[in-house]
Design a protein around this nucleic acid. Sequence first.
DNA 1: CTATATTGTTTGTGAGACAAACTAAAAATT
DNA 2: AATTTTTAGTTTGTCTCACAAACAATATAG
Lengths: 155, 155
Amino acid sequence: MNNETFNPASQPSVPENTSSIVDSLAQLSYVIQSVLGRSGAVYDLSPIQLRLLGILRDREPSMKQLAERLELDKSSITGLIDRAERRHLVERIPSPEDRRGFNVRLTPDGRRIAREIGGEIERRIGELAGVLTEAERGQLASLALKVAEARSGPD
Amino acid sequence: MNNETFNPASQPSVPENTSSIVDSLAQLSYVIQSVLGRSGAVYDLSPIQLRLLGILRDREPSMKQLAERLELDKSSITGLIDRAERRHLVERIPSPEDRRGFNVRLTPDGRRIAREIGGEIERRIGELAGVLTEAERGQLASLALKVAEARSGPD
DNA sequence: CTATATTGTTTGTGAGACAAACTAAAAATT
DNA sequence: AATTTTTAGTTTGTCTCACAAACAATATAG
């Protein structure tokens, strides 16, 4: 039956015929996470470090903003940034408008790694998506984005 | 630009126009993981414990098979199952055909929790997918499954 | 100006992951 | 059959990651 996720019996809940989409989305997300994980591993980056670099590519958020975006406790962010800083991937910049706070940004090293690893991911996910036709890829991208942006909405 | 993931410059790699699908899939997978995480948290289950329960719903794999499926080291499985067993979610059953090995299966408690949490996930992802039309949901489910099964293929 | 709230760190605890060394049993060799 | 080699799982030690509670410094509200 090939179900490694969660589709309980069959009392449809919110929209009709939920369980199939639930299961396939969960399944897909594990596959993607696995690909991301392996890509990160090439550069010895944990999933959360990888995600951090991804976020910092075009932002210099405060510790607080990072906590919100990553849905982590602020004390977890302290540790995360400590470790990333120790590896010269990011740096804390004193906030100009709040003397308590810091903004976090990529170092040149961090930016380079982020770029390289981006290529790695591109390659691997591209390969994965290779089982689809060009039209299907477009559809999938658009539907995926629509769902992803449904919650918390576009920036 | 609302990109929190990874789409490096724009030299298409494998198929054409990769970067859009890469980004939206990565994005989607984070959203799904976040939903799964919150659902698990309701029952005080970590992401990996949650995934374990999902796998055990219709299997009684050996420790070794779990390691393969979860892509974890065998020693990580020992710890994972220890903790789950301590919480009476799963149990080790001595393998009938190999006196070194165990199969792992859900306890009745574990099965109940798995069922309940399944409903929780169903509800939350169903809600998320509510931004799509019924037709779109079908499309998405089918495309997602196709990609997910591309690697390692159906069981 | 004082009271309160907010930003981030520290400390302590536990889960989770890995690698290397180890035990017991199974499988392959001779 | 006896011996070697592989395999399944555990142990130990080390690190990352996450949280919560207590704390310091600064900002904001009254």
